[in-house]
Design a protein around this nucleic acid. Structure first.
Lengths: 307, 307
DNA sequence: ATGGGGACATAACCTGGTCTTATGACCTCG
DNA sequence: CGAGGTCATAAGACCAGGTTATGTCCCCAT
């Protein structure tokens, strides 16, 4: 669900969700089994941790930890809350590593240029893995389309690039690091959601679809796969908008698998089987023709392909 | 990546990631195209919004919005940051709706009892959808195993239940609302990650696996599917711990598809094909034998099956 | 039994950030 | 050229959260 929805009642989210420090504290308590130890790990005093957890419990109206003179264990409700909290913290970690890469523009040890889709969905995870393995590696990120990525690499402004698309830009060597697929999705209530027989290319081309605007990467791939014939029901300028429209059952939408993975898993969208259309596209690491880059770039490349 | 990793350097996450209010503000600015309008929507003053965005930019070291006397548009970097921010906010929304349901114990209009897996991964999304459609419906959540869910329903302490498992508890009617599958996953570097030929039941039973502890729902399903013969390489007491072990390439792990969906999509784990083992299990809504419940329960039931 | 140590709670005080109101500067458009 | 929109700055009030110092309780080892 996106934030374009009517909006939660009762004031902004921030008033009802504990802040990141509190959630990190909760995770630490869950892991270490003691408020005091968690406090030490986070570099705050024990009373601060105690008070923070208490106020979090007051805010949520739920007892989260069972205190005992021998330590603290999570309540049953606390365990559930902690699981939900972990997802916030993980998203925050991705945000953090991504933002940091965006900041360290030049003068970094590793300069990465990536397409939007990869930068948005995949790169943060890779950078977290890289940080775990080589702490302190400063990474700079430049996001752009395939042509821009190629330009950066050839101009020596980036050490490693990532592109999605059918062809490798000239002058670059490449290695496939993953796959993306355009998928057709509908809200669960749509007729196509119950289809077992795949939708054919002709049928897809003949049905009005919710699509990104003409010129977008997604749209180009779809048009190429169908032979330039996609019929738009709506044309929207962001992936999020397309998702929202599809969820509200406006019709079938075509989106990257990466963009809708979560919604499909949660059942908010249903993937419609398609046959006879090549919607798969490779995600590739690229670098200037020649030997595989050395140093941090090689390290990152290794991570994306499985150590 | 979980928070059990070495931990980010440079102080707690909360010092480097803007708080939820700031992220919500950023989303509002992106959507409305003006700091002032965003401020009004969030019920704060325009200078507060202006200052908040400014301090966020200072904190991240990146310009996020282009101000003009005619409004504010996102920078290119700002768009990327906003996408990452949206994921945090979405996780926070799930947290919020879940925590709220946990609080409103009794006296709610809709009392739901759900198994842990469903409560953790699916229910928040359903509740967000329910809130969008029927704002103000107070929901109470009780999490427990199948037997506890059945008990609550039969005792009149819950209106609707959700269970995962092979059989429907006696005295209850059920409707399938989704599927879950146990999947075998490995780190991308593991030998099995490159298998194209499915792993057989015998092979699976003969290989030491990273598993949840005996008695857990996941383990029971696996043991039943293999005929009680799963060989543990490690036995861990939480899904998170199993995931972490698998990511660090300790060996193949067996987990719910819901639990590893994100990791598989991001390439941190690879799904290993398996043949000849029934690892699929239905997720069911359940209610006391008789007519489908009315009121909010029916509404929620409808949402889970696609309106 | 008894003292040490760990764990959590309470109290008093401080600091710092963030909001608000009140302006000012700038651009666009009728 | 004035009206209405946008964003920025300034000054003051306020509250949240942190710290140190201390108290209570329980376990365990001597």
């Amino acid at each position: 669900m996106t934030s374009e929805t009517p909006g939660p009642p009762g004031g902004p989210l921030a008033h009802r969700v504990p802040d990141l420090a509190a959630l990190e504290l909760l995770l630490a308590v869950a892991r270490l089994g003691s408020l005091g130890r968690a406090a030490r790990e986070l570099g705050i005093s024990q009373p601060a941790a105690s008070g923070r957890v208490r106020s979090m419990e007051r805010q949520l109206g739920v007892a989260l930890v069972d205190r005992s003179p021998r330590g603290s264990r999570l309540t049953e409700a606390g365990a559930l809350v902690t699981d939900w909290a972990r997802r916030i913290v993980e998203a925050a970690e991705a945000f953090d590593v991504g933002a940091q890469a965006l900041r360290d523009r030049r003068d970094s040890r590793l300069r990465v240029a990536a397409s939007m889709t990869i930068a948005e969905y995949l790169l943060p995870g890779w950078l977290i893995a890289l940080r775990a393995r080589r702490p302190g590696t400063a990474v700079a990120l430049l996001a752009g389309n395939s042509a821009q990525v190629a330009e950066r690499l050839l101009g020596g402004e980036a050490d490693l690039g990532f592109v999605e698309g059918l062809r490798v830009p000239a002058g670059l060597d490449a290695a496939v690091v993953g796959h993306d697929r355009l998928v057709v999705v509908t809200a669960p209530g749509h007729a196509w959601a119950r289809r077992r027989t795949p939708v054919s290319a002709a049928e897809l081309a003949g049905t009005p679809l919710i699509l990104r605007e003409e010129g977008s990467g997604t749209r180009q791939v779809l048009d190429a796969a169908l032979g330039g014939l996609a019929a738009p029901l709506m044309e929207l300028s962001s992936t999020t908008a397309v998702k929202s429209a599809a969820v509200s059952c406006a019709g079938p939408a075509v989106l990257s698998e990466l963009a809708v993975g979560e919604e499909v898993l949660a059942g908010r969208l249903v993937r419609v089987p398609v046959a006879g259309v090549r919607l798969r596209r490779e995600l590739r690491a690229v670098w200037p023709t020649g030997p595989v880059p050395a140093g941090p770039a090689r390290e990152l490349l290794g991570l994306t392909r499985g150590a």
